[in-house]
C-alpha cells in the first residue's frame, strides 16, 4: 500500500527506467573523472555513500542569525545502468530545536552520455517526504522538486588552451513545489567549477605531482534558491570554495560556506564530507546495479 506522497515517486521510478542509457560508473566519463560534489548534486547515477557530511553555519532567514549544525548522509543505489535512487537525511541541531530532517528520495536517470565531449545530462525528481522527520526541525509537508543535472569537461578545448582542459563544470536546475500554499515555490539552482589535477597530470602535462597531490581537485560550488511566488523573499544561497581529495574507494572534501547575502546568513561556515565509492569497494555485490549489471 502506498502513502499518497509516494505515488508520484513510484510513477517517476517506472518512467525513468524506460529511458536509461548504458553507463560506466562513479563519475568517469571519457578521459575524465568527476568527483562527487558536496553542496550541489552531481549528474551521475552511481553506487555511492556520503557518510558523514558535517556542516556548521549561521543561518539568516531574514531575522537574527542562528547557528546550525547538520549531520547528514546520502546513499545512492544503482537500480539499472544509468539509473539510481538516492536516500538522504540527517540530523539538524539548532538552538531552537534538534531532530532528524525529513527523508529525501531522489531517482535520477542519465539521459545523455557523451564521453568524447565529456558531457552528461540527467533528469531526476526529488521527494522530500513530509513528516518523516522530527516536528521540531523538519517540514510537515512533502516537497517535490523535478530537476535536470549536467556535467561538462573541457577536454575538447584546442591545444593553445590546453591548461584549461582540466576544468569541468556541473550544474543542477530544479523547481521546488511544496505541498502547501504557505510556502512559496522556488527555483533551485546550483553547480560547481572544478580543476582536476589528475586530468592535468595524466592528459595535459605531467607536472611530477606525487600521488596525493595528483588526486586533489580544487573546487568552487554554489547553491541558490529563488522563490517564485509573491511574499517568498529574494534569492538566498551560498558560494562554497574548497578542496576534494579522491582516492580509489573514498573521497574527503572540505569547503567554506560563504553566504551571498544577509538574508542567507552571516559569517563563513564550513562543510566536510567523507564519501565512499561503493561500486569500487564492492563491485560484485552492493556496488553493482540490481538489474543489468554489465559494465
Amino acid at each position: 500500500m502506498f502513502n499518497s506522497s509516494l505515488k508520484p515517486f513510484a510513477c517517476a521510478l517506472a518512467c525513468a527506467t524506460l529511458f536509461t542509457m548504458p553507463a560506466s560508473a562513479h563519475g568517469i566519463l571519457g578521459d575524465r573523472f568527476f568527483p562527487a560534489t558536496i553542496t550541489s548534486d552531481d549528474p551521475f547515477a552511481a553506487d555511492e555513500l556520503a557518510l558523514p557530511t558535517f556542516s556548521a553555519f549561521r543561518r539568516g532567514d531574514g531575522g537574527p542569525a542562528t547557528s546550525e549544525k547538520d549531520y547528514d548522509f546520502e546513499w545512492s543505489k544503482s537500480i539499472a545502468p544509468g539509473f539510481a535512487i538516492s536516500f538522504a537525511g540527517g540530523y539538524i541541531d539548532t538552538p531552537s530545536g534538534k531532530g532528524f530532517d525529513n527523508l529525501e528520495i531522489t531517482p535520477v536517470a542519465e539521459v545523455i552520455r557523451d564521453p568524447d565531449r565529456e558531457f552528461i545530462l540527467s533528469a531526476g525528481v526529488s521527494f522530500d517526504i513530509g513528516r518523516s522527520g522530527s516536528r521540531a526541525v523538519a517540514d510537515s509537508f512533502t516537497t517535490y522538486t523535478p530537476e535536470v543535472l549536467f556535467g561538462k569537461g573541457f577536454g575538447d578545448l584546442p591545444d593553445d588552451m590546453a591548461l584549461l582542459r582540466p576544468f569541468a563544470v556541473t550544474g543542477t536546475l530544479g523547481y521546488a513545489i511544496p505541498g502547501t500554499s504557505v510556502t512559496s515555490r522556488s527555483v533551485e539552482w546550483a553547480g560547481a567549477l572544478e580543476y582536476s589535477l589528475l586530468y592535468l597530470q595524466n592528459n595535459v602535462r605531467d607536472q611530477g605531482f606525487g600521488k596525493f597531490v595528483a588526486q586533489l581537485t580544487p573546487i568552487v560550488e554554489f547553491s541558490m534558491e529563488t522563490p517564485t511566488g509573491t511574499g517568498g523573499g529574494g534569492t538566498t544561497g551560498t558560494v562554497d570554495p574548497g578542496l576534494l581529495w579522491s582516492g580509489q574507494y573514498e573521497q574527503l572534501g572540505v569547503e567554506a560556506i560563504i553566504p551571498v547575502n544577509r538574508a542567507t546568513g552571516r559569517n563563513i561556515g564550513v562543510v566536510a564530507q567523507l564519501h565512499f565509492y561503493i561500486d569500487d569497494m564492492f563491485p560484485d555485490t552492493f556496488g553493482r546495479p540490481l538489474f543489468g549489471g554489465a559494465r
Binding site: 560508473a25 562513479h26 573523472f33 589528475l198 580509489q248 565509492y277 569497494m281 564492492f282 563491485p283 560484485d284
Partner: peptide, 10 residues
C-alpha cells in the same frame, strides 16, 4: 573494504 579491485587510474 576488501581489495576487490577498482577503476584502474593512470
Amino acid at each position: 573494504s576488501s581489495p576487490a579491485g577498482a577503476h584502474a587510474m593512470l
